[in-house]
């Protein structure tokens, strides 16, 4: 080993502390990721498909889907249709709420409005849910801000809170977009109407949730 390098013990200790801290912080406290894709335009990464510019967002990871989760928050969640993947969407409704489905968001059509044969089942499921869905206990309704290109609860239905892995704290980079753009732009809610309801524990799950 060259003389200018520290002895192997110091190197090993340094590697342990750096790796351990990164994994521990990422799993419990904070994650910082760039946003790829156009499903959250124009809120996040608005120039993604023109210049490729990405927003880098910090995620709060300590109990992100606890009782302080609100409608309008941005969450990162493990996608229900692919266990390895994760995505970013906005919380539109919480458990107990009634969502009046937006017809523009009916899945199964491509960007030109032509029906896609591969998504016939998804469209059929959406028609079965329409015109309104009551979000079950422990679940949330997620939608992308870009209704033209967003694979969200309109495809796979209400998403369990257990799948939520992070809640957005703010845009870190680039500096001119610092802050919480999803709260500044008031038009986020789109056309999806939500009737607020009370999230009550169903009788059959009382023992599990309340421990009675």
């Amino acid at each position: 080993m060259p003389a200018f390098l520290p002895p192997w013990r110091t190197l090993a200790a340094g590697a342990f502390w750096i790796t351990g801290t990164v994994i521990g912080v990422n799993d419990y406290l904070l994650e910082i990721t760039p946003i790829v894709g156009n499903s959250m335009q124009p809120t996040l990464s608005p120039q993604y498909y023109t210049t490729g510019a990405r927003d880098t967002v910090a995620w709060h990871k300590w109990r992100p889907a606890g009782p302080d989760l609100r409608r309008g928050d941005l969450v990162m969640y493990t996608t229900p249709h692919r266990g390895e993947g994760s995505a970013v969407k906005r919380v539109i409704a919480l458990g107990g709420d009634t969502v009046v489905l937006d017809k523009r968001r009916r899945p199964g059509r491509d960007e030109d409005g032509e029906p896609k044969p591969s998504e016939r089942t998804v469209a059929k499921n959406w028609d079965a849910m329409a015109p309104k869905v009551v979000v079950p206990y422990g679940h949330v309704w997620l939608e992308g801000d870009n209704w033209r290109a967003s694979k969200d609860s309109n495809h796979f239905g209400p998403v369990s809170r257990s799948l939520i892995v992070g809640r957005a704290m703010g845009v870190m980079w680039p500096p001119q977009r610092w802050g919480r753009p999803w709260e500044r732009e008031a038009g986020f809610a789109g056309k999806t109407k939500v009737v607020k309801g009370r999230e009550a524990v169903p009788v059959e799950w009382e023992e599990l949730v309340l421990g009675v």
Binding site: A65, G138, H139, V209
Partner: peptide, 9 residues
């Protein structure tokens, strides 16, 4: 697995 109804179970 993490329970889909109660996230702490």
């Amino acid at each position: 697995f993490k329970h889909p109804v109660d996230q702490y179970t």
